[in-house]
Design a protein around this nucleic acid. Structure first.
Lengths: 351, 351
DNA sequence: ATGAAAGCGCTAACAA
DNA sequence: TTGTTAGCGCTTTCAT
């Protein structure tokens, strides 16, 4: 017996009953395959009208079960709470919806176990594809995806078993280093005359490329970089604060050129800088490989590199659309942002 | 005939066959209801072992279809790309996963039509609950949720038909205004001696409360606020830039006290400030109802109010857990952040 | 141009 | 203590 309660969701059978058509006809009409099934326009319109009237909403779990896909697309990121990844997330979301997919962004907190759990969860929900951004163990995830027959694309890190879309980190670091060298005041003497890169980890491909560019660019200026000029203290603000404080003590001031390798590290650096007098910055050129609108308006000029998140995601979707599943690598140029500037896109109508 | 292809996903029937048990037994074991079904521990262990061996992964669409729920929980936000909402998102995500739910965060871009579409989509996927953060038309969404029998909770905006968790915007604005008045240099004369609030819209509850507090706090200091001191230019940086530029022209400089009503508006304000000499700021006290770590290190002090996003989300989950579905309102205190300070939570190990 | 019927993978009565 | 069975709501042959 049909439950007479209001709670029963309306189904295609309700519409079938009301319209006098069969469930399969209703289904075809409602999911757009009706033209291929030579259903008359009259029938189609009639059914659509009824569906609208009774407020029919399709059950995606039923459809998904039948079709063995879900209409959802996933992306994993280390954290939502980060300018770069949330910006990737925004583009991912908008572009997913533009193609009728439901976006699901999950954060891994940079934990390999969480990464695994999350990807497995998403597979359980039969997501149609996965973007992997900022994984700590890409190999592990690639294997899980491959085993589950899940299309996946690496974003902002290179994978071995599927296409990758990367920022041209070498180019970005080169632009930034060159700029910093050009702007370096020549007053700093002795140990303070050197250039330093701070932040990041060697496990991280992006960091590796940036260090390569940093080294090479300094090399072009006939400067040799020793190990102590590359300070790998991770991304955590606290660690960066400790590292810069220590460096300051060792060399007796700020270095002539300081390349900070992420915004989070820069937060830590700033917390130390806040303890210094304004004069401490006069002999240094400071840059950050990341973008925050306010960092460009500090008491000293900060040069920044901004990744083109929208382009990264756009490329990733293009690879999906064109069924590219080799392990090709696609690079996107970042942009050098001058101090006292706000990237123009941020001045759009949307907050 | 069973397909011998590798592509067939393994199901509970595969496990049933291998273990000699029935599908329902396997199901009970795998979803934890087996103790209630008086299944022997031996059987359970045997089945679990096999499931692990053959790498079984549950099909959540099938489970969801059967149970008429999905194990997913949704949240809508205006944009991901925003410090406040991405911070809400992070807490939402972590806490969802902690209770075994799959978080889905979707952005509406502040469009009423998108809001509607998105909520309907989420309902089609049978999400178990929805957090509504930053909707432009909460009434519309409330009705849709109610009709679909979907538990929903308003976050950062008050709803009429379900519980709401809000920042105490009045308190925050009061703290900020008091601080600004206390710090206002007394040098400004004439029209520049007044206090201004810039940014936001009157449709927005948070803005309304902040304006109330701004007015009342100034009232306590025996100052009357006229309409022109409340500049409702929306949240877009571009509009805010235009508005502050216009104000500057009208009153011949910066006002003695400037209360900026959001970080995005503050971005716009900064893009105008960048055109001013450092001396332009000496007669003003400037504050922002929002937090960015770098905004505290600008060339002039900026007082900020930081909302407690984690507490907002924690409360919202508590309401879910305790089955609170009345239209009660729950407020969470924000925090006043002094310039030259980085909120301590940001200095954790995670970037 | 349309309908009947099977089945996606799981869970929950009800039997045994 | 476990198995049988009947769906959840949809799509998709295949028949007509």
């Amino acid at each position: 017996m049909q439950q007479p309660m209001q709670n029963r969701k309306t189904t295609i059978y309700d519409i079938a009953q009301r319209s006098g058509a069969s469930a399969s006809t209703v289904s075809a009409v409602l999911n757009g395959t009706w033209s291929g099934r030579r259903i008359s326009k009259d029938t189609a319109e009639h059914i659509s009208k009824i569906a609208l009237e009774i407020g029919y909403a399709i059950n995606m779990q039923a459809r998904g079960l039948r079709q063995a896909r879900s209409g959802m697309i996933g992306m994993i990121v280390p954290t939502h709470d980060n300018r770069f990844f949330s910006s990737l997330g925004q583009s991912f979301d908008s572009l997913a919806r533009a193609r009728g997919l439901c976006p699901v962004i999950a954060s891994t907190l940079r934990s390999p176990q969480e990464e695994k759990r999350i990807v497995e969860t998403l597979i359980s929900y039969a997501i149609d594809a996965l973007f992997i951004a900022g994984a700590t163990d890409p190999e592990q995830l690639g294997k899980i995806c491959t085993d589950a027959n899940l299309k996946h694309i690496y974003v902002d890190l290179p994978g071995k078993d599927a296409p990758s879309v990367l920022t041209d980190n070498f180019l970005g670091a080169q632009m930034l280093t060159r700029k910093l060298l050009a702007e370096t005041p020549c007053r700093a003497k002795g140990p303070r005359a050197k250039s330093y890169l701070i932040g990041g980890t060697i496990n991280d491909h992006a960091t590796v490329r940036r260090i390569e560019a940093f080294r090479q660019t300094l090399g072009e200026a006939r400067v040799v970089v020793d190990e102590r000029q590359i300070i790998q203290c991770g991304y955590a603000p606290r660690q960066a604060a400790k590292a810069i404080s220590q460096l300051y003590g060792e060399i007796g001031g700020l270095p002539a050129c300081l390349f900070v390798n992420s915004l989070t590290a820069f937060e830590g650096v700033m917390s130390f800088f806040a303890t210094l007098p304004a004069s401490a910055f006069s002999d240094s050129a400071i840059g950050c490989f990341d973008y925050d609108p306010f960092a460009g308006f500090l008491q000293f000029p900060v040069y920044m590199v901004r990744q083109d998140t929208h382009q990264l995601i756009t490329k990733a979707y293009e690879l999906l659309d064109h069924d590219v599943f080799d392990s090709s690598v696609h690079e996107v140029d970042p942009e050098l942002i001058e101090p006292r500037t706000i990237a123009i896109e941020n001045l759009g109508e949307l907050g």
